[in-house]
Simulated assay, not measured.
Amino acid sequence: MAFRAAVVTFPGSNCDRDLAVALEKVSGTAAIRVWHGDAELPEKLDFIGLPGGFSYGDYLRCGAMAARSPIVRAVVEAANKGVPVLGVCNGFQVLTESGLLPGALMRNAQLTFVCRTVPLTVENSQSLFTAGYEQGETIRLPVAHHDGNYFADEATLDRLEGEGRVAFRYGEEVNGSQRRIAGVLNAAGNVLGMMPHPERAIEPELGGVDGRALFESAVKALVAA
Rank of each mutant, 00 (worst) to 15 (best):
L86K: 10
G132D: 01
T121M: 12
G37R: 14
V34H: 06
V191P: 01
K25C: 07
E199Q: 04
L95A: 01
N124D: 08
E161M: 11
N108V: 04
H36I: 00
G103R: 15
N90F: 06
L95H: 09
G63T: 02
V75H: 11
G164C: 04
R200K: 07
G87Y: 13
A109N: 04
H146T: 13
F168Y: 13
Q126M: 03
D46H: 10
G189L: 02
V75E: 01
L23H: 06
T121Y: 14
R179I: 08
H145E: 11
L23Y: 09
H36W: 11
G37M: 04
A66P: 01
T130A: 06
E163Y: 09
A67E: 00
N14M: 09
F151R: 15
A201E: 06
F10R: 09
A155I: 04
Y150L: 14
E173Q: 12
G176F: 14
L214W: 12
D38S: 08
A2S: 07
T9V: 11
T130R: 02
R116E: 00
D46F: 02
V114I: 14
V88Y: 08
V143K: 12
I48N: 05
P70E: 05
S177V: 13
S127P: 00
D210S: 11
E97V: 06
P196S: 03
F54E: 03
K44R: 14
A64P: 01
L214Y: 12
R17G: 02
A5L: 05
V8C: 07
A218V: 15
A221R: 11
V122K: 06
T96Q: 12
V94W: 07
V174D: 05
T9L: 15
Q135R: 04
M65Y: 07
D18R: 00
F92V: 04
C62H: 00
S98W: 06
H146M: 13
S27G: 03
V88R: 06
P204T: 15
G211F: 07
V7Q: 08
L41F: 05
Q135V: 00
G136Y: 08
L206C: 01
G28P: 05
N108D: 04
Y150V: 14
V118W: 07
S127C: 04
K81M: 02
V21M: 12
A22T: 01
L222Y: 09
F10I: 04
V122G: 03
F3N: 10
S217K: 12
V143N: 08
Q126L: 15
V88T: 12
C89W: 14
A79K: 10
A131L: 04
E154M: 06
P102G: 10
V76C: 09
R4C: 01
Q110T: 12
L206A: 09
F113W: 14
S55V: 00
E77Q: 11
Y170L: 03
V94N: 02
G164Q: 10
G189Q: 05
G171H: 10
A20P: 04
P51V: 00
A109W: 05
A188Y: 00
F10W: 11
